[in-house]
Amino acid sequence: MAKKGKKLADAAKDAADKVPAPSPNPMTNLILADIALRTGGALLRRGVEKGLIGSKLGSKKAGRVIKGRSMMQTLVGTAIARVATRSVPGAIVVGGGLLAKTLYDRKRSRKAEAAGEVAVEEQAERGKKA
Protein backbone atom coordinates (compact mmCIF):
# COMPACT_ATOMS: atom_id res chain seq x y z
CA MET A 1 0.00 0.00 0.00
CA ALA A 2 2.90 2.38 0.73
CA LYS A 3 4.25 1.85 -2.79
CA LYS A 4 0.91 2.83 -4.29
CA GLY A 5 0.82 6.08 -2.30
CA LYS A 6 4.40 6.91 -3.29
CA LYS A 7 3.59 6.29 -6.95
CA LEU A 8 0.57 8.60 -6.75
CA ALA A 9 2.63 11.30 -5.03
CA ASP A 10 5.34 11.03 -7.70
CA ALA A 11 2.73 11.22 -10.46
CA ALA A 12 1.19 14.34 -8.89
CA LYS A 13 4.62 15.94 -8.59
CA ASP A 14 5.41 15.17 -12.23
CA ALA A 15 2.09 16.66 -13.32
CA ALA A 16 2.72 19.79 -11.25
CA ASP A 17 6.17 20.18 -12.80
CA LYS A 18 4.63 20.15 -16.29
CA VAL A 19 2.18 23.00 -15.57
CA PRO A 20 3.82 26.27 -16.62
CA ALA A 21 4.01 29.16 -14.15
CA PRO A 22 2.04 32.32 -15.03
CA SER A 23 5.24 34.34 -15.35
CA PRO A 24 8.88 33.49 -16.00
CA ASN A 25 9.82 35.78 -13.10
CA PRO A 26 9.68 33.83 -9.79
CA MET A 27 8.98 36.99 -7.73
CA THR A 28 5.94 37.77 -9.87
CA ASN A 29 4.71 34.22 -9.31
CA LEU A 30 5.23 34.61 -5.56
CA ILE A 31 3.24 37.86 -5.53
CA LEU A 32 0.44 36.28 -7.58
CA ALA A 33 0.29 33.29 -5.22
CA ASP A 34 0.20 35.62 -2.19
CA ILE A 35 -2.65 37.69 -3.67
CA ALA A 36 -4.61 34.57 -4.60
CA LEU A 37 -4.22 33.03 -1.14
CA ARG A 38 -5.14 36.25 0.68
CA THR A 39 -8.18 36.80 -1.53
CA GLY A 40 -9.31 33.21 -1.08
CA GLY A 41 -8.81 33.48 2.68
CA ALA A 42 -10.80 36.71 2.85
CA LEU A 43 -13.66 35.23 0.82
CA LEU A 44 -13.69 32.09 2.94
CA ARG A 45 -13.62 34.14 6.16
CA ARG A 46 -16.50 36.33 4.99
CA GLY A 47 -18.52 33.24 4.00
CA VAL A 48 -17.95 31.56 7.37
CA GLU A 49 -18.83 34.77 9.24
CA LYS A 50 -22.01 35.23 7.22
CA GLY A 51 -22.92 31.59 7.76
CA LEU A 52 -22.45 31.74 11.52
CA ILE A 53 -24.17 35.09 11.99
CA GLY A 54 -26.74 34.64 9.23
CA SER A 55 -28.22 31.48 10.73
CA LYS A 56 -29.82 33.60 13.43
CA LEU A 57 -30.06 37.08 11.89
CA GLY A 58 -30.57 36.38 8.21
CA SER A 59 -28.10 36.79 5.37
CA LYS A 60 -28.82 40.44 4.56
CA LYS A 61 -28.51 41.64 8.15
CA ALA A 62 -25.41 39.47 8.67
CA GLY A 63 -23.76 41.26 5.75
CA ARG A 64 -24.55 44.63 7.31
CA VAL A 65 -23.19 43.51 10.68
CA ILE A 66 -19.93 42.36 9.07
CA LYS A 67 -19.68 45.56 7.06
CA GLY A 68 -20.31 47.67 10.19
CA ARG A 69 -17.28 46.41 12.08
CA SER A 70 -15.10 49.16 13.49
CA MET A 71 -11.38 49.35 12.81
CA MET A 72 -10.70 48.46 16.45
CA GLN A 73 -12.81 45.29 16.22
CA THR A 74 -10.94 44.26 13.08
CA LEU A 75 -7.52 44.91 14.63
CA VAL A 76 -8.36 43.07 17.86
CA GLY A 77 -9.72 40.09 15.93
CA THR A 78 -6.61 39.99 13.75
CA ALA A 79 -4.29 40.24 16.75
CA ILE A 80 -6.08 37.47 18.63
CA ALA A 81 -6.03 35.21 15.57
CA ARG A 82 -2.32 35.87 15.10
CA VAL A 83 -1.56 34.98 18.73
CA ALA A 84 -3.62 31.80 18.41
CA THR A 85 -1.90 30.66 15.22
CA ARG A 86 1.71 31.50 16.16
CA SER A 87 2.18 28.97 18.96
CA VAL A 88 0.56 26.15 20.88
CA PRO A 89 0.53 28.13 24.15
CA GLY A 90 -1.09 31.04 22.29
CA ALA A 91 -3.76 28.72 20.90
CA ILE A 92 -4.39 27.32 24.39
CA VAL A 93 -4.69 30.80 25.92
CA VAL A 94 -7.01 32.08 23.17
CA GLY A 95 -9.08 28.88 23.14
CA GLY A 96 -9.34 28.93 26.93
CA GLY A 97 -10.43 32.57 26.86
CA LEU A 98 -13.10 31.82 24.25
CA LEU A 99 -14.33 28.85 26.27
CA ALA A 100 -14.45 30.94 29.46
CA LYS A 101 -16.37 33.72 27.68
CA THR A 102 -18.85 31.21 26.22
CA LEU A 103 -19.47 29.60 29.61
CA TYR A 104 -19.82 33.03 31.26
CA ASP A 105 -22.34 34.12 28.62
CA ARG A 106 -24.31 30.89 29.03
CA LYS A 107 -24.47 31.46 32.77
CA ARG A 108 -25.87 34.95 32.19
CA SER A 109 -27.81 33.98 29.08
CA ARG A 110 -30.64 36.51 29.32
CA LYS A 111 -28.41 39.49 30.01
CA ALA A 112 -25.80 38.38 27.46
CA GLU A 113 -28.44 37.86 24.77
CA ALA A 114 -29.96 41.29 25.37
CA ALA A 115 -26.57 43.03 25.38
CA GLY A 116 -25.49 41.13 22.28
CA GLU A 117 -28.64 42.02 20.36
CA VAL A 118 -28.16 45.72 21.16
CA ALA A 119 -24.53 45.57 19.99
CA VAL A 120 -25.50 43.73 16.78
CA GLU A 121 -28.20 46.30 15.99
CA GLU A 122 -25.71 49.16 16.45
CA GLN A 123 -23.16 47.44 14.24
CA ALA A 124 -25.77 46.68 11.57
CA GLU A 125 -26.70 50.37 11.54
CA ARG A 126 -23.06 51.30 11.01
CA GLY A 127 -22.99 48.77 8.16
CA LYS A 128 -25.99 50.40 6.49
CA LYS A 129 -24.24 53.77 6.47
CA ALA A 130 -20.93 52.41 5.15
Rank of each mutant, 00 (worst) to 15 (best):
L52R: 08
D14S: 12
A33W: 01
M1Y: 07
L52H: 05
K56C: 01
V83R: 03
G58Q: 06
K111E: 15
G68M: 07
I31M: 14
G58I: 02
T74R: 13
T102N: 06
K67M: 10
K6F: 07
I80F: 10
E121D: 15
A81P: 00
A112K: 13
A79E: 06
S70H: 08
A124P: 04
A42V: 05
G68Y: 02
K60A: 12
S70T: 15
L37W: 03
S109K: 13
S59H: 04
V76L: 13
G51E: 02
T78A: 14
G95Y: 10
G47F: 02
P89I: 14
V93C: 00
G68D: 05
L98R: 11
G58E: 05
T102E: 12
I80K: 14
Q73A: 04
G96D: 08
K6R: 13
T85K: 08
V76M: 10
K61Q: 11
S23Y: 07
G5W: 15
K111S: 07
S55H: 11
A84W: 07
A11Q: 15
A100Q: 04
R69W: 01
V83E: 06
K107F: 15
D17W: 05
L103G: 01
G63D: 10
L30P: 01
A42C: 01
T28M: 11
K4A: 04
E125I: 02
Q73T: 05
K7T: 00
A100G: 09
I53Q: 04
K18T: 05
V83L: 11
T28I: 15
M27N: 10
A119T: 01
M72N: 07
K67S: 11
D105F: 09
A119G: 00
A115K: 13
K129W: 03
G127D: 04
R82V: 12
A84V: 03
P26T: 06
I92A: 10
P24G: 14
L99S: 13
G96N: 08
L57N: 02
S59C: 00
R82L: 12
R86N: 06
